[in-house]
């Protein structure tokens, strides 16, 4: 598989949100606006790339039976690192995303990539895989955030051209489920024809 292929497959063929349907909790909870979705996607991508690299480097040293707890510790270490970095440099984003930053530990995408890809492949390939899947996740979250912000608040990335109320339900819980359902349907229709 070519190097470029590793990155592009995460965007379309193995898109974690629209195709594999992994990591649904942060996808639904943090996408109240496009900016929030984008920051959550980037935060997850940061952890995903680093944990993929670390796990592929140490995979041979870990006994098979305790590999899952070992992976979780590696992931949790990088998440703690991320928490410190965000608290120091972007405290406002850290406050908005709140609980969902420590919850990156239990994001199934990251453990899934460790188990399905990183422990069988080299460090460079795993990093590229992390970038690809991370990009797919970020794009999906930003898109969902964009749709919800547009319908719910009539604004784009915080830019609000007209002073009017949107459909409030799209910023609240039900809109998350409904918007994601329709995005998946649109994604399926678009990829089907190719």
């Amino acid at each position: 598989m070519s190097k470029l292929n590793l990155i592009t497959k995460g965007l379309v063929k193995e898109n974690p949100t629209f195709v594999l349907l992994l990591g649904m909790c942060p996808t639904l909870a943090t996408t109240t606006s496009a900016i929030n979705g984008l920051s959550m996607g980037l935060a997850t991508m940061f952890v995903l790339i680093l944990s993929n690299m670390a796990i592929s480097a140490i995979a041979r040293l870990i006994p098979d039976k305790v590999r899952i707890p070992a992976y979780i510790v590696v992931i949790a270490t990088f998440v703690t690192l991320l928490q410190f970095l965000m608290q120091a440099y972007v405290p406002s984003v850290y406050d908005t995303l709140g609980l969902f930053i420590p919850l990156i530990v239990v994001n199934c995408i990251i453990l899934g990539r460790a188990e399905a890809f990183a422990n069988k492949n080299g460090v460079v390939d795993s990093a590229l895989d992390g970038i690809g899947i991370g990009l797919g996740f970020t794009v999906a979250l930003t898109l969902l955030g964009l749709v919800r912000e547009l319908l719910g608040n009539l604004s784009l990335f915080g830019w609000k051209p007209v002073q009017a109320d949107g459909i409030l339900a799209f910023v609240l819980a039900p809109g998350a489920f409904i918007a994601l359902a329709y995005l998946i349907v649109v994604f399926r229709k678009l990829t089907e024809k190719k």
Partner: peptide, 16 residues
């Protein structure tokens, strides 16, 4: 999944 998500959305609306 899409139809399940739509159902969940309506359920969430009820819980609202």
């Amino acid at each position: 999944v899409p139809i399940a998500l739509l159902t969940a959305g309506i359920l969430a609306m009820a819980f609202m």
